[in-house]
Design a protein around this nucleic acid. Structure first.
Length: 409
DNA sequence: TCTGGGGTCCTAGGACCC
DNA sequence: TCTGGGGTCCTAGGACCC
């Protein structure tokens, strides 16, 4: 028996939340992302903006040139979107216990067992959409099929507010006319390799022998593309996929050469990463420094620690020593950031026992750091930075954190 | 036209060990 | 004085996804 997998995708999510919360913006192009005149890209835009050819990841300068004067530009408010996302995920869990959240606006559900209780797939899909609309006032596109690939492509097939069911016997006809670039793992680098073979659609891909695909795409991707072209893909939904890493990075409004500014930013990133790691009870051994120079030249340096940590100071220290060990000083920096990974002795990705022994130090730099970031807050990432600072403001975050750990000392 | 941020997974070379 | 094969860890980079 084949499974029944449902994919749900909230339509133009960030922009839809903004239009929901600002009725005067409804019917107008809304761009969520960088501000005009600044460095950055479109994160999401409303369907009114898409009509002008604007889309996610488009440089903001390019979007401005295409869009009319009545366009609304707004910076993302991730905290708000995360809250709405949580509500939606809660709704999904009322439909099926097997929900895998794949991003802030997407999830997969295994609804195999629901047909006898609820009805045919289309009824299940309609119910999901209606419950979301009722709970948060947003539309979603839903796709249903026998595996993740088909469900995902089905939800993409009709947008916004779509509902598409692809039964097993219709997979061949559903896939054949689609451009092969919709398959998983085909991006800007691998697409040209297939194009050179004269391939345009998934139907074309099906004409190629497995060996040809493996030769041109590599063994792994080649095999995967071969199977996907035949509608074969993973049908497992895992509600508890553990997180593998935590990271924070920042692109500066203008390139930065001042090492003190780089240090401060790295301290901020370390506090953010440390805070999330402690909240989610993760101790990591691998600290990674990420840095990007003009023109978009990106490097990473990582170090494996003797002792797993979630301590701000330890994270910063490791990253800063990685930075100091390189002959980079003086080069203007576009982006700097830090990440942690390599959980050890995991308990389903969470380390309760180990975590008990970790007593993170409050960062002594906090006040100066807060002042600096406040000064640049209006230029970029305002919401994210603000959230970070709120968490540590006197009387809230830091006080709570101290009291949480002091009784163990 | 200039390219955000937070992730996952894969590859490949070298070290090290048996 | 020459030198196999395999496994695992570490590190850097890259492709891709949302």
């Amino acid at each position: 028996m084949s499974r029944l997998i449902l994919h749900i995708d909230l339509d133009a999510f960030y922009a839809a939340v903004e239009q929901r919360d600002h009725p005067e913006w409804r019917g107008r192009p809304v761009v969520v992302g960088a501000e005009p005149g600044q460095r950055g890209v479109v994160a999401t835009c409303s369907y009114e903006a898409r009509r002008f050819g604007v889309h996610s990841t488009m440089p903001i300068a390019q979007a401005v040139r295409r869009l009319p004067p009545e366009t609304v530009y707004v910076r993302p408010s991730m905290a708000r979107y995360a809250k709405v996302s949580q509500q939606v995920m809660g709704v999904l869990e009322t439909v099926s216990p097997v929900v895998e959240r794949v991003s802030i606006d997407e999830a997969y559900l295994d609804v195999s067992g629901l047909t006898s209780l609820v009805g045919p797939p289309a009824v299940i899909g309609a119910q999901v959409k209606e419950r979301i609309r009722h709970a948060v006032g947003l539309t979603a596109s839903v796709g249903i099929g026998p595996n993740r690939l088909i469900a995902k492509l089905a939800s993409d097939a009709q947008k916004p507010d779509g509902l598409t069911v692809v039964p097993p016997e219709q997979i061949g006809g559903f896939l054949a006319p689609m451009p092969f670039t919709v398959l998983r793992g085909i991006g800007v680098k691998t697409a040209p390799r297939l194009e050179r073979l004269g391939v345009k659609t998934i139907g074309d891909v099906r004409q190629l022998p497995l060996e040809t695909l493996r030769h041109h795409l590599g063994a792994r991707t080649g095999t995967q593309v071969y199977q996907q072209a035949r509608g074969l893909a993973d049908d497992r939904i895992d509600p508890d996929r553990p997180r593998r890493s935590i990271s924070r990075e920042m692109t500066f409004p203008e390139d930065v050469s001042d090492p003190r500014m780089l240090e401060k930013t790295l301290r901020w990133a370390a506090q953010e990463v440390g805070s999330i790691a402690r909240q989610t009870q993760h101790l990591g051994r691998v600290v990674t420094l990420k840095i990007r120079f003009h023109p978009f030249e990106t490097h990473t340096r990582s170090r494996t620690l003797e002792v797993p940590t979630a301590d701000d100071v330890a994270l910063f220290g490791a990253a800063w020593s990685l930075f100091a060990a390189e002959p980079w000083s003086g080069r203007p920096v576009r982006l700097i950031g830090l990440g942690i990974s390599g959980w050890s002795a995991t308990d389903g990705g969470v380390q309760r026992d180990l975590f008990e022994t970790a007593a993170p130090e409050p960062c002594p730099e906090h006040d100066r750091l807060a002042a600096t970031l406040d000064a640049i807050r209006n230029r970029f990432g305002a919401d994210d930075i603000q959230r970070g600072l709120n968490r540590r403001s006197p009387g809230s975050g830091s006080a709570r954190r101290r009291s949480r750990y002091s009784h163990r000392t």
